[in-house]
Every structure is written in C-alpha cells, then in structure tokens.
Simulated assay, not measured.
Amino acid sequence: MLVDSHCHLDFPDFADELDAVVARAEAAGVGRMVTISTRVREQTKLLVIAERFSNVYCSVGTHPHHADEEDGISIDELIALTRHPKVAALGEAGLDYFYEHGSHAAQARGFRTHIAAARETGLPLVIHTREADEDCGHILDEEMAKGAFRAVLHCYTGGRELAMKAVALGLYIGFTGILTFKKSDALRALAAELPSDRILVETDAPYLAPGKFRGKRNEPSYVVETAKVLAYARGVSFDEISRQTTENFFRLFSKVPHPDAAA
C-alpha cells in the first residue's frame, strides 16, 4: 500500500471526474489520500470531499500565497476546525519567496500561528517552503524551542542544510514527482541520504506530474512513479519503500486510521 500524503482534490482540475480519480488511486494501491487546504475560508469544500470518500482525509490551513488574504486567522479558529474527524493535519503553511504572492511578514505570522495550533492539537503541520531555507530554518529552531510539534516539509526542493535540520528536529521530508525529473540528481542524492523513518511520498496533484506523465495533470495514482524513483535512489525495493513511507505516514498523520486497525 502507498499513501498520497499531499494532494489538492478540491481544485477545479478534478471537478468533473473526482470519483474516477479516487478509483484510479485505489486501483493503483493508494490506500489513503490527504487533500490539503490552501485557504481556511474554503475549508467546507475539503470537508465535503473528505466526507464523501472513506479513504480521503484533509487538513486546514493557509498557504503562504494567501497569507495576506487570511492574515489574522487565530490559533483558536484553527484548533476549532481540527475537531472534525476527517481533519488530520494543519497547513499547508510556511514561506514562499519564489513567487512573492504573500508578504514575508504575513507569511511568517501565519507560519507561527499554524505551528502553535499544531503544538496545541498534536496534529502534524504540513509546511510549504520555497526559496526560503534560512528563514524557515530560523523559525523552526525558534518555535521548537518553545515546545515540540510535528511536521513535514512537503514537496521538498530545498538545500541539504535545511533538510538535515528538519530531520534533527524530528520532522519529515515529503517528495513529489520533482524527484523523477532528469535534472533532479541533487534531490535524489539527498533523498538517498535521509533516514528511512523520515521520508514520505506525495503528488501535490494536480501539479508536478512525475516524469512518465510530464506535462499532464497529476493525480494521486501517480504517486507510484515517485515511489519507484525513491526506491531506486535509496537502493531498496519498491515494496520496501511502500512499506516504509506508509508506516511513516501513519506515524505522523496519527489521526488517520490504519486499514489494519479494523481487522
């Protein structure tokens, strides 16, 4: 079994065939999917999907691109929204200095607010960080000193230093189809170096389709291709990487019930 730990099933790209997309994921052996929030104010859309499919869960949070738009959302509001049984994580929140869609100050405020909510609830935080390694690392150090929290740096494309800092702090690293791209040698080398109990696979669908499907809309079933490349990079079998990343997922996203729990 595999898990797509990060996708966006509420995006318009899937509106016309969501049932088919989820069915293809199931047929490919993807047993759980987490559809990730980008706007707290649109949480209802994610809950409708998560309630519709037994194997789909969701998060609640504000993407850094929307940090100014949702500046001021409180810790208490986030915590209240996590009480829904299908909300298994906070985020995605963090820092994105690539597109500059959100001011740095609002991004940092939102990031710290989501960390506080993760610390309070015990749920994992899905962290988005791009072209912001130094500031992200600084915030992680400061916030972890205030009290432990759980998190994953999703769709990792940053440097080795931030990845190793995150792992040292007990966090996880998520890999997308970018890992399969021809020019991703450095990323594959980093993926090979990380501890086996700190790695996850994801799609970030509908974006970042793996090399085999480059140029097409991504979807959760394609996480299989990323897992294959991760296994090759680490010199292990596909079955082993499936087992390890799935085990890691259920350890981090502990609110999501394991299929074996009902047995």
Rank of each mutant, 00 (worst) to 15 (best):
D68R: 08
E70M: 04
E70N: 09
D71C: 10
D71Y: 10
G72T: 00
G72M: 06
G72V: 03
I73P: 00
I73E: 06
I73H: 04
S74C: 00
I75K: 01
D76I: 06
L78F: 09
L78N: 03
I79A: 09
L81P: 03
T82A: 07
T82P: 01
R83A: 15
H84T: 12
H84S: 12
P85K: 02
P85N: 08
K86V: 07
V87G: 05
A88P: 03
A88Y: 14
A88R: 13
A89I: 10
A89L: 05
A89M: 05
A89F: 02
G91D: 06
A93W: 06
A93H: 07
A93Q: 12
A93I: 04
G94F: 01
L95I: 14
L95P: 06
D96F: 05
D96K: 02
Y97L: 11
F98H: 15
F98N: 15
Y99R: 15
Y99C: 13
Y99N: 15
E100R: 15
H101K: 15
G102L: 02
S103W: 07
S103L: 01
H104E: 10
H104A: 14
A105W: 14
A105T: 04
A105E: 00
A106V: 07
Q107M: 11
Q107V: 01
A108D: 01
A108R: 14
R109H: 05
R109C: 01
G110S: 04
F111S: 08
F111N: 03
R112S: 05
R112V: 03
R112M: 00
R112P: 07
T113D: 00
T113N: 02
T113A: 04
T113P: 14
H114I: 05
A117D: 03
A117N: 08
A118K: 09
A118E: 05
A118H: 09
R119S: 08
E120I: 09
T121L: 05
T121W: 14
T121S: 06
G122K: 01
G122V: 08
G122Y: 08
L123S: 11
P124S: 11
P124H: 13
L125Q: 12
L125R: 12
L125W: 08
L125N: 09
V126S: 11
V126A: 12
H128S: 12
T129L: 09
T129R: 13
R130S: 09
R130V: 11
E131P: 00
E131A: 15
A132H: 02
D133Y: 14
D133F: 14
D135M: 05
C136S: 07
G137I: 08
H138E: 10
H138C: 08
I139P: 00
I139H: 00
I139Y: 03
L140N: 04
E142F: 02
A145Y: 02
A145W: 03
K146G: 06
K146T: 08
G147S: 11
G147F: 14
G147M: 13
G147Q: 12
G147W: 15
A148T: 09
A148W: 06
